[in-house]
């Protein structure tokens, strides 16, 4: 066999090998929908909050260590992404994950927030196309990224005017919160593109002890030594995020 033929044969094997590898992965579109009391949440529109009028106008959070888990084990499909309902055109945020190994999965798992090793870094440590380059999502006073932002206004006097601004930002390593969502039917990833829909029920994020957070009593959460409300909100993500 001539050297040329040998070279072409080798090249063919390499190309075929690569094709085979690409056939083993697919793309997952993970769509988060913002809900409030089961209805699509439109930013800044009035919703009922325990009998009072409320407007949510900022809802954003990081998710990290995103995994699909099936009989073949768990697959990490992404490190950190930002779910930004505030600036999304509608009530949905779509995140794409490429090169997800083919397989059948029963669970999607991720954590709201930033893992400790990354949370020890700063926005300037990341390129501008990385979610962790967001300097608006880092708070020096906490030495932490802001894991989630939930802001809006509440009608405190029953006058119909949403007069009180609330701002709940969360952060710090201890509040890193794992969310596990069991899928109703096996989720099959093959060579194409598959969509997985998750809902974020915002009403659930405010629940506390069978009722709701007393926004009037504590409308802001900035003090790193008083993370009561942020802790409640992050804990609520565990049940607030579900299959859509």
């Amino acid at each position: 066999m001539s050297k040329t033929k040998l070279f072409l044969l080798g090249l063919s094997l390499v190309v075929l090998g690569n094709c085979t590898q690409k056939d083993d992965v697919g793309t997952v579109n993970l769509i988060f929908s913002a809900l409030y009391d089961g209805q699509p949440l439109v930013m800044n529109q009035v919703v009922d909050y325990d009998g009072s009028s409320m407007r949510i106008n900022v809802s954003e959070f990081f998710i990290s260590e995103i995994k699909l888990i099936g009989s073949g084990g768990e697959r990490v499909i992404g490190d950190t992404r930002y779910v930004d309902f505030t600036s999304s055109a509608g009530d949905q945020v779509e995140l794409k994950f490429y090169d997800v190994p083919n397989g059948t999965y029963d669970v999607i798992e991720f954590s709201v927030g930033i893992p400790a090793d990354k949370n020890a870094m700063k926005p300037e440590d990341f390129s501008s196309d990385h979610p962790l380059s967001r300097s608006s999502s880092y708070w020096q006073g906490w030495q932490s990224y802001i894991f989630s932002k939930l802001e809006g206004k509440l009608d405190t006097a029953g006058s119909g005017v949403t007069d009180l601004t609330f701002i709940y930002h969360s952060g710090k390593d201890d509040l890193y919160t794992k969310v596990v969502v069991q899928l109703n039917s096996p989720f099959v990833v093959d060579e194409g593109s598959q969509t997985l829909n998750l809902a974020v029920e915002h009403q659930a994020l405010f629940k506390q002890d069978g009722g709701y957070l007393d926004i009037n009593a504590k409308p802001t959460a900035h003090n790193p030594d008083d993370l009561e409300y942020p802790s409640v909100i992050l804990e609520n993500f565990k049940t607030g995020i579900s299959l859509d």
Binding site: N44, V46, N57, G152, I167
Partner: peptide, 9 residues
Amino acid sequence: LDEDNVDNL
């Protein structure tokens, strides 16, 4: 207020 886009801060 339905379209108030001024920053909450």
